[in-house]
Design a binder for these strands. Structure first.
Length: 317
DNA sequence: CGCTTTTGACCCGCGC
DNA sequence: GCGCGGGTCAAAAGCG
């Protein structure tokens, strides 16, 4: 699947998220990877504070078979070419990857205020305009140079089966671009966190081979709490998995053999198995709250979080 | 009116 | 050097 190959994403490696601690772990399959980002929990990447999930044993309540990874985490690598990470679409089990210390890199101020200096005669105006243009371009160039020097932000991606492109994750995003993706009828959308101090970006695109799958890529780490955190800070109420998409969506279970190629991965394991999806979604749903009444207490009806089709399926059993 | 989305233009890196 | 694709900018339009 080409689109997934695309999300191998330049210089990235893939690793698992361990639901038991919701952090990145040295899973046996990838133990040869030097994952320095292990200190960076998956939830943390999304800006969810540890105390919201560290004490939760909700994940342990899940049957083993359901305790699989709901996502693929893709980390930005430094000094590592794609060929060394996933040569010929293979993830080498012996590859050692050095990950960058890229957490909370201060963002470059994203403003280039152009001072409008005086309005003279026509010639002067043209000159001013040209000067401004040059200035703007120089500023742009300078800005880009700075941003290039800036260390790469950690990235991770996950695939979600969803009817809607944009999946709610508790943060507010502003769309700043859209690009057509080569060999895909679906465009890629670029979002930026609306928080002024936050430099997190998000890319959303549909999988070419399976339009029902939405690939979301996060870049960077939120420097502020999610509006959802407030709600989740209550005792006995576990965080809503930010990976859990909006109602009507399924987070894909990602299980793959380290020696599998991306192509194999996407053609076999990523082939949507409705049963698996269903199980995955139910499993995710169980993580929401240990006490069902809390959901109601929060004004969240579990049914609201479950696609009606799934519920129907569930109830008909 | 303020915020968000749209969209064409631009820049950059990379491969040839 | 050139073309291509990815990523970003920013003016204009849209929206509540």
């Amino acid at each position: 699947m080409e689109s997934y190959k695309d999300i191998k994403m330049e210089d990235h490696s893939m690793y698992f998220i361990d639901n038991n601690n919701f952090g990145v772990t040295n899973h046996s399959l990838i133990s040869d990877y030097n994952i320095n980002t292990s200190s960076l929990g998956f939830m943390e990447l999304l800006g969810f504070h540890q105390d919201f999930y560290s004490s939760a044993s909700v994940f342990n309540e899940l049957p083993k078979e359901e305790n699989y990874c709901p996502a693929v985490c893709v980390s930005e690598e430094e000094e590592v070419k794609p060929s060394s990470v996933a040569a010929e679409n293979q993830i080498s089990s012996t590859t050692t990857v050095a990950t960058g210390n890229v957490l909370n890199t201060p963002s470059t101020p994203n403003c280039s205020s152009i001072s409008s200096e005086g309005h003279g005669d026509a010639d002067g105006e043209v000159e001013n305009h040209e000067q401004q243009n040059t200035k703007t371009k120089q500023q742009l160039k300078a800005k880009k140079t700075v941003s290039q020097k800036k260390q790469k932000e950690p990235r991770f991606a996950f695939m979600t089966k969803s009817e809607v492109d944009f999946l709610e994750d508790g943060y507010r995003w502003r769309k700043y671009g859209q690009k057509a993706v080569k060999n895909s009828p679906f465009p890629r959308n670029y979002y930026r966190c609306t928080n002024a101090t936050c430099n997190v970006k998000k890319r959303v695109e549909r999988c070419f081979s399976d339009p029902s799958i939405v690939v979301t890529t996060y870049e960077g780490k939120h420097t502020h709490p999610s509006p959802m955190n407030t709600m989740m800070s209550r005792p006995n109420c576990y965080p809503i998995n930010p990976l859990l998409p909006s109602p009507g969506a399924f987070t894909l279970p990602m299980q793959f053999n380290i020696n599998q190629s991306f192509n194999d991965l996407t053609s076999s394991n990523l082939a949507i198995n409705n049963q698996l999806d269903h199980a995955a979604f139910v499993a995710q749903g169980r993580r929401f709250c240990s006490n069902s009444e809390m959901l109601g207490d929060q004004g969240i009806d579990f049914q609201d979080l479950m696609p009606s089709a799934v519920l129907k399926h569930e109830y008909n059993r």
